[in-house]
Structures are given as C-alpha cells and as structure tokens.
Amino acid sequence: MIKRLSALALGLFMLTACVAYQAVDPNEAVTISNRFSVTPQIAWAKQTAVGSKDTIWTVDGVELNVLRFLPAIQEGDALIRQSGRRSEDIVPYKDDMLPNDVADLMVTDLTKLGYQAVSYSNLAPASFGADTGFRFDLVMSTPGGLNMQGKVLAAQRDGGLDAIMYLAPSEYYFGKYAQTVEQIFRSVKAAS
C-alpha cells in the first residue's frame, strides 16, 4: 500500500489517475519542445497528460522504467518541474552552475521528491548532439526500499539546460533498456 502511495505521492512521474498513453514510433525522430530531437529506437509509450513541460516515456510502466526529457530548464526552475511541487521544495537551477553543480542539484531534487540514499557518480563530458554537454550516473532507493539506478545526459545550451534522464529499478529493469538509452543519447540532434 504504502509503496504504491509513495510512488504516487512522489508525483514525479505519475500525476493524475486518468493518464493516457500514446504510441511512439521507434524510427521517427521526435522533437522535444523545439529544443532537440531523438530517435526512440523502440516502441515507447508516451504519457499524454504530464503536468509538466517535460516529456515522459515508458515501456513497462513508470515505476519500472522511465525516460524523462527535461527541456529548456531556466534560471529559477527546479530541475524536475512538476505541477503540485511546493515552492519550498524547489531548489533552483542557476545559469552559472557547473556540471558538478547540476549533478548535485539533481541529487537534491530527487531527495526532495522522496528518493533515499541518492548519489551520483561518473560525471564526465559527453556529446549532446553537436554540443558538448555532460553525463552522470545515479543510484537511489525508493521509500519502499527498491534499489534504483539512473543515467542523465545534459547540456547547457541555447539559453537553458536540456537534460534526458533514465530511471529504473536496478533489479532487471535498468539493464533491460540501458543500451537503448545509450542509442537514444547518441541520436540527439539540435532542433532545426
């Protein structure tokens, strides 16, 4: 019970009860908020009513795998923008943040959302399309004690921060689409 509630209460990836999903064509490039495009690689399901500027995809359900696109984060925004988050929980992104700061901020944001024992590792420069961005790995556990892993690719470009985040339980699910996500990272292109 509480595990389910925790997932819902987190409000991170599943807001209203009446969410619908649309199919995503694996081979057609998708443009995210006019910022950048990616090629899905496989048949993801896209959440239609997100309550956020972000785009959310899943294959098996958001608690099992979630690919979240966070486009154009601006100064003053939380990294994870979601309607219903209280202002006192929002630790704002700042334009002068370095990649280390962004990774730290992601840890803080996930902590505020209720994940536990959150930490990042393997921070390194990485290509975001033609731009130079950065990437890092995440570990954490849910309030229910399920261990999770994640990876983030991000870039400060074009007047904002763009990021792509993949999160899934360590047991089976993270590995299931880890390579697919790498392919998606490699498929990033600036929006024309």
Binding site: V19, A43, G61, L64, L146, N147, E171
Partner: peptide
C-alpha cells in the same frame, strides 16, 4: 528481497495498465 519489492512495483503497473485506471500501454 529486491525481487519481492520489484514485484510490488510490477503488480502496481499491471493493475494500473491492465485494469484500466492507468491507461493502457499501447505497446502492451
């Protein structure tokens, strides 16, 4: 223990996506 905890998450996904409330996943 992790597998059992994973089952809780899987069970919720099944409930949400196969029994209506969460919206069917088009790929499933």
């Amino acid at each position: 223990i992790q597998v059992a905890k994973l089952h809780s998450a899987v069970g919720r996904s099944i409930l949400l996506h196969l029994y209506g409330a969460g919206g069917q996943l088009p790929n499933k």
